[in-house]
Amino acid sequence: MLFKKNNKALNLKELIEGCRKGSSSSQKLLFDTYSSKAMRICSKYASSDMETEEIVMDGFLKVFKNIEKYNDQYEFGGWFHRVMVNSAIDYFRKNHSKIEFADIENIENIDFNPNQLDLLSVEEILEFVRKLSPVYRAVFSLSVIEGYENTEIAALLGLTESGVRGNLSKAKSRLQGWINEYINRQELK
Rank of each mutant, 00 (worst) to 15 (best):
E124A: 04
K69M: 13
S87I: 00
Q73R: 07
E124Q: 15
I67S: 02
F128V: 01
L132T: 02
D118N: 15
E75N: 06
N106V: 07
A88H: 12
F101Q: 09
V135N: 10
L120M: 12
F60D: 02
I67P: 01
D58T: 00
F92G: 04
F101I: 09
R137G: 10
F80V: 02
Q73T: 15
V63E: 01
H81W: 02
D103V: 04
V135C: 13
E105V: 11
F76D: 02
F76Q: 02
S97A: 11
P134R: 09
E68R: 07
P114T: 09
P134T: 00
P114E: 12
N86Q: 14
D118Y: 06
S121H: 08
N115R: 08
S121C: 05
F112S: 06
I110V: 10
Q73Y: 14
I110H: 08
I125G: 10
R82I: 06
I89K: 13
A88D: 11
F92E: 04
L117N: 03
N66G: 13
F101P: 06
H96N: 11
L117P: 04
F64N: 01
L126P: 12
R82M: 10
G78W: 03
G59P: 13
F112R: 11
Y74V: 09
R137D: 08
I110M: 03
E100S: 11
E127Q: 05
Y70T: 00
I107N: 03
G77W: 02
S97G: 15
V122Q: 13
D111Y: 15
F80I: 04
I99K: 07
D118V: 15
F128I: 01
S121D: 13
F60W: 02
N95A: 00
N106W: 08
D72W: 09
I104F: 12
F80N: 00
K131Q: 08
F92S: 05
E124R: 10
E123C: 04
E124L: 01
N86Y: 04
R82D: 14
M57H: 01
N66S: 14
W79H: 04
K94E: 12
I107Q: 07
I104W: 11
E108L: 13
L61R: 00
N66Y: 08
A88K: 05
P114H: 07
F80H: 00
F92T: 01
R130Y: 03
Q116P: 05
E105L: 08
R82Y: 05
E123F: 01
E105W: 06
A102Q: 08
I89P: 13
L119E: 11
